[in-house]
Design a protein around this nucleic acid. Structure first.
Length: 103
DNA sequence: TTCGTGACGTGCA
DNA sequence: GTGCACGCCACGA
């Protein structure tokens, strides 16, 4: 598959994540057919257009943490949106066992 | 074309 | 439970 298709797939997977749930980078990568390319997912999200309405904030790392720097504006937006959707963020951590989306 | 880098994952101390 | 080292893949200089 082409890299372009890969991105399209990533976007598609993002759109499938229901509100109130989260997904790890690795999981998104795998669902997009890019197993072991979790880093690429992060890079792709970074390059995501600002006016995009994709729920990128529902993607976190396998540790249940937000990968962005705590002092980053994006980090705060992600945190706020997650809590608004009902995802409990305790001590900067999210319980994957409880909130991870399972297709 | 090669090298360094990054919103990651897994294994181990 | 936390931190570090190494492995992975795609991208830009």
């Amino acid at each position: 598959m082409s890299q372009l298709e890969a991105k399209q797939r990533i976007y598609q997977v993002l759109g499938k994540i229901p509100a109130g749930h989260v997904c790890t980078y690795g999981q998104v990568a795998e669902l997009a057919g890019l197993a072991r390319a979790a880093r690429l997912v992060g890079t792709t999200l970074k390059n995501l257009p600002k006016d995009s309405n994709l729920p990128w904030h529902r993607v976190i790392n396998a540790q249940g943490r937000i990968s962005l720097p705590p002092d980053s504006p994006s980090h705060q937006r992600q945190l706020e949106r997650l809590q608004k959707e009902g995802v409990a963020v305790v001590g900067g951590r999210i319980s994957l066992a409880q909130f991870q989306w399972q297709p």
